[in-house]
Structures are given as C-alpha cells and as structure tokens.
Design a protein around this nucleic acid. Structure first.
Lengths: 153, 153
DNA sequence: CTACTTGCAAATCCTTTGCAACGTT
DNA sequence: AACGTTGCAAAGGATTTGCAAGTAG
C-alpha cells in the first residue's frame, strides 16, 4: 500500500493526477467523512479544526476543482450558499427532499424517475446529460410513521 | 373597463393590491410580453428602453415583490443570475430543458412527472409543497426532426 | 527545478438597503 | 395626508483572484 489512512476522496484526487498538498488531504478527509451536505463555510470549519493552516480561499479553490473533476457534486437547497457532497456512481445517484419547516434533507433514489426524464428528454430531441431535481415538502405528522433514515442537514 | 392597455401582469398586481407606479407598470408590461426567461439585467434593459426613469434597484425590488406574491417564478438555469418568468396556473406549470451547447431553453409540460414526484414525496412522509426540475442535454442531430417549438433563451 | 498551490487581502458579481425625495391611493 | 415607492450610492454576502512565497512531483 502507498500511505496509510488515505481517504476515499484523496484516492480519487490522486487518480485524477492532482497534487496532494497537506491542505487538500485534510479537505479530502473532511469531505470523505461528511454524511451531510456542508457548505464551504462548514467545510472550512471542519478542516480548520484538523489543521489550522487552511484558508477559506483554499477550500473554495478545492471544492471547485473537485467539482470540475466530477469528484464532488454541488447542490443548492434554497439558501444562497452552495452545498457539496461526494459524487456517487451513475447507478446510485440520489435526490433530495428538503423539509421546508426545518431545513432537514432526506435523500432518496428512484430509478423509475431517472428513466422517466431520460425518456422525456429524448422525446424533446435531447440526449440527457444531467439534471437537477429537488423536492420541498412538509412532514406529514403520520401517527405511526417509521423514523426516517438518511436524514441530515 | 378600467384603463386601456393594461398588461396581464399589471392586472395581477392590482388584484394583489399593489400600488401601480409608472415604473411598475413598465416592468409589468415587459414581463407580460417576455417570451423567454430574462434576468434582472435584461429586464432592466427592456424597461429602460421604454422609460428611462427606471433604476435597476427598482427592477430588483419589483421582481422580488412579484415573486413573493406568486406572480413571477424565479428560475436558475446554471448561470449565477436568477431568471424570471410569469407564473402559470397550477395545472399548466412547465419544466425546462437547457441545451448545454447553446444555452437555449425548451419548455415542456408533463403531468405524469408531476404525479410521480407527488407520490415519491408521499412515500417519504412529506406533503409536496414545491419542487425544482431542470434537465440539461445536448441536441440529437436527428436527421428528420421537426423544428422544435417553444425554444427561447 | 518547475509548475502548481497557498494565504492574504483586494476585487468581483449579484443583490439588497438606508435615506431623503416623490407619487399613489 | 399617510404610507408605500424610487433613485442613488453605499453595503452585503458569496465567491474569485493577483501576487509573492511555499511545496509537490
């Protein structure tokens, strides 16, 4: 093995031929461990707590770079700030529904939806390259509803 | 009739109890006549050409107000600027597919899609309040494809 | 060694806002 | 007359960038 404790995203950076600086390694680790959808400010906070020598400009530069490489996905859940999360393999991409009362985000996958929009695009004469879907809703206070999994901010 | 040549959006403003200033009347007219998805800069340009006494601050204030009233919809097609278009009645809402090579926008309606996401939200325990869907694609150079209608920027 | 990366602060882009003057109801 | 609206310029928030110094490959 190369170096120990290499994060998933660090691995991807290396595979993409990126120079691995200390800062990038820390940011890659933070991103790899994130289970939510942090914005740059939050990434900066988490990275700073691991290594104080990181500037927010570097965080901006890094998420931008990783997004261009397809390693990260940028999301917009309604606020003004962009949120980030690791890309998933084509067949595991997920969507988000945002609770408009709390801001909480629930992820879901839906292959049928994916097929539907591919067909829609095709009927319109397009090859679908990418798409965005966000749902905004309000929790139904269903008496016996199971606790929702995959809920984050 | 009240006053002549009242634009659709001016009518809506009045119905919502908004004070109709000269500036608002002009902006309402520009919005009513727009067949595309102008950003604030473009609305300002069009309004200015009708009446030089309009500031861009007023355009910003007006689109914001009309969006809050539900008269306008704000869109985001990938650039940094917000785009606007008149709201449509619930049962005629449409989506957009953006040609990633040219930036051109094609609108489409799809009731089946609407039903699908309502069901998805419900399964997740949510009442669907609103949603966003944008498709990004590349024109299929289909030999005999009919000229696409509803194509704007 | 060379080319890429960083920190810092200044700059940029889009949008909002304070304030005094003005216009609509 | 009362209160909402406007123009102007300044303020704001998020993100980018110029530059000199630092560092990975």
């Amino acid at each position: 093995m190369s170096s120990r404790n290499e994060s998933i995203i660090e691995r991807l950076c290396i595979d993409h031929g990126l120079k691995m600086t200390g800062q990038r390694r820390v940011i890659a680790k933070v991103l790899s461990e994130a289970e939510d959808h942090p914005d740059v400010e939050e990434l900066y906070r988490r990275a700073s707590s691991l290594d104080r020598r990181i500037s927010i400009a570097t965080v901006y530069r890094t998420v931008r770079l990783l997004e261009e490489k397809g390693i990260l996905e940028r999301r917009n859940f309604g606020g003004n700030r962009a949120r980030y999360e690791a890309s998933e393999p084509e067949d595991h991409r997920h969507y988000h529904i945002i609770d408009i009362d709390t801001g909480h985000v629930v992820e879901f996958e839906d292959a049928a939806h994916r097929d539907m929009i591919r067909d829609i695009a095709e009927k319109l004469g397009f090859d679908l390259v990418s798409h965005r879907l966000e749902l905004f809703g309000r929790r139904i206070p269903a008496s016996g509803r199971k606790k929702q999994s995959g809920e984050t901010i």
